[in-house]
């Protein structure tokens, strides 16, 4: 076996060292306030408006905002990110938690080490954070349930079949939305006949929706607990399009999340209600209020709620329908 030449090893080591040094230099802060925003997962399109909001707040306030996330939506990976941030002694952390209990201890440790911590979108209320910015996922699910019930007001069918699309089974935020939806439709004539999990994979979400709709053309409604199938172009969903357009009065779709790509689906009458959360505000207000606290000020716009630790900043949401989608999504 040939030995690996020492010169090549030195060259590779030098290249990696230079790369590491340049990346470190790019990330160095020179004494300015550093706030790190930690979404649940890198590359999840839902969080991108939060990134824009956080970066805008950073520009407005002269704060260094960094976006850091695990590549998968796993609580353990987020714990590792937070542990790294504690070692780096950053000034503030805003996090959307993959699981409230799994993140509780590490966030409490960060707070005890003098880092100002807040949560957005998905909370960890017991960790001791001073405020949470967002709309609760359970509440978002309740809104979806209410909107679905409205779609079938006056419909006397004894049983209306509903299929649900979810992400990774057991993921806390999606489970909360699902629970909110199921609790709301409980006792009504809406019956859940199928729950399909797409593992947060857009391609799989399209396959599941298409396969189930093709096999069950008599299905009445879809509830998408996340907007995965609406990131694509409508042409990727021919079965869904056929089903929806065959009986628009009785075939209904209620979905979480609103994207700019949702416009094409509204144009073709493929969505009845989309419930959006204001991620831009979540990002902006989190950074703004973390900065207030770091510089000795107070949280602005927060409110006290019974049984809710810390302050609640309600970033509101949007209910987008075929009647208002052009204004609502353009405004976003």
């Amino acid at each position: 076996m040939r030995s690996f030449p020492m010169k090549k090893m030195l060259l590779i080591t030098t290249i990696f060292t230079l790369l590491a040094c340049s990346l470190y230099a790019a990330g160095s802060t020179d004494g300015e306030v550093v706030i790190v925003v930690v979404p649940q997962q890198l590359g999840n399109i839902v969080f991108l408006p939060a990134k824009e909001g956080a970066e805008q707040a950073g520009k407005d306030l002269g704060v260094k905002v960094q976006w850091m996330a695990p590549v998968k939506a796993e609580a353990q990976l987020q714990v590792e990110v937070i542990e790294g941030l504690i070692e780096r002694k950053v000034d503030g952390i805003a996090i959307s938690c993959n699981h409230p209990d799994a993140l509780k201890d590490v966030l409490a440790r960060a707070i005890s080490e003098g880092i100002v911590v807040s949560t957005f979108d998905a909370d960890s209320p017991e960790c001791g954070r001073p405020f949470y910015a967002g709309t609760e996922n359970y509440q978002a699910g309740v809104i979806c349930g209410e909107e679905m019930l409205k779609q079938y007001e006056g419909n006397n069918k004894s049983s209306i079949s509903v299929a649900i699309l979810e992400g990774i089974p057991g993921a806390f935020d999606i489970e909360s939305r699902k629970k909110g939806f199921l609790d709301t439709i409980k006792g009504s004539n809406l019956k859940v006949v199928y729950v399909g999990a797409c593992d947060d994979d857009v391609d799989k979400s399209v396959t599941i929706v298409e396969d189930y709709t093709r096999a069950n053309p008599d299905l009445d409604a879809w509830f998408m607990a996340g907007g995965w199938p609406y990131i694509v172009q409508p042409g990727a969903l021919p079965e869904m399009t056929k089903w929806k357009q065959s009986d628009p009065e009785n075939h209904k779709v209620v979905t979480m999340d609103v994207f700019s790509s949702s416009i094409a689906f509204f144009d073709e009458g493929l969505i009845d209600v989309a419930v959006g959360q204001n991620f831009y505000s979540m990002g902006y207000l989190s950074v703004e209020n973390l900065y207030n606290l770091i510089s000795g000020g107070e949280v602005e716009g927060g409110m006290k709620k019974e049984g809710f630790p810390g302050l609640f900043i309600d970033t509101g949401g949007q209910i987008v329908t075929p009647a208002n989608y052009k204004d609502e999504i353009a405004a976003e």
């Binding site: 590359g43 999840n44 998968k72 593992d199 947060d200 994979d201 857009v202 391609d203 399209v206 990131i231 694509v232 172009q233 042409g235 990727a236 790509s261």
Partner: peptide, 16 residues
């Protein structure tokens, strides 16, 4: 083919 099937180029495509 997958990008064409979905009509978008996704940075998360093919994960796993």
């Amino acid at each position: 083919i997958t990008a064409s099937k979905l009509g978008i180029g996704q940075p998360t495509a093919g994960n796993g």
